[in-house]
Amino acid sequence: MQPVGVTLTTMMDWQGQKLAEHLMQLMLVCFAVVAFIAGYVLGSFQTMFLIYTAGVVLTSLVTVPNWPFFNRHPLKWLDPSEAEKHPKPQPANSGPKKKASKK
């Protein structure tokens, strides 16, 4: 496990980014619904505003920083030494050309 300082500066993986976006939208909408209902029932506009503000702060704390939580599916790059051991990846120089031609 990497130290926290390092993990927070590294980026999210693909699934982490998707999760962060969905989580942000879901949390904000849920807090808005709860805040509106609470404000309407209690007859207090201020209550609505405070609940929603708290929700926005909480959502930003959860979804904005690069938490290790969002980096559970890191891309597995091939180790350079692995590549040297096997001759087959060697023609990878021509690989991109083949792919380009396929497209």
């Binding site: 980026m11 999210m12 976006e21 942000m24 904000l28 808005a32 309407y40 929603y52 926005v56």
Partner: peptide, 30 residues
């Protein structure tokens, strides 16, 4: 959602859009 600032920007715009919607609903509820 690829970086810290991009996510902060998305959250800010989305949360303010929702706030505007809530205010409109409060006005309608009158």
């Amino acid at each position: 959602m690829h970086s810290f600032l991009y996510r902060a920007n998305a959250l800010l715009t989305f949360s303010i859009t929702i706030l505007a919607l809530m205010c409109a609903m409060a006005s309608v509820s009158d």
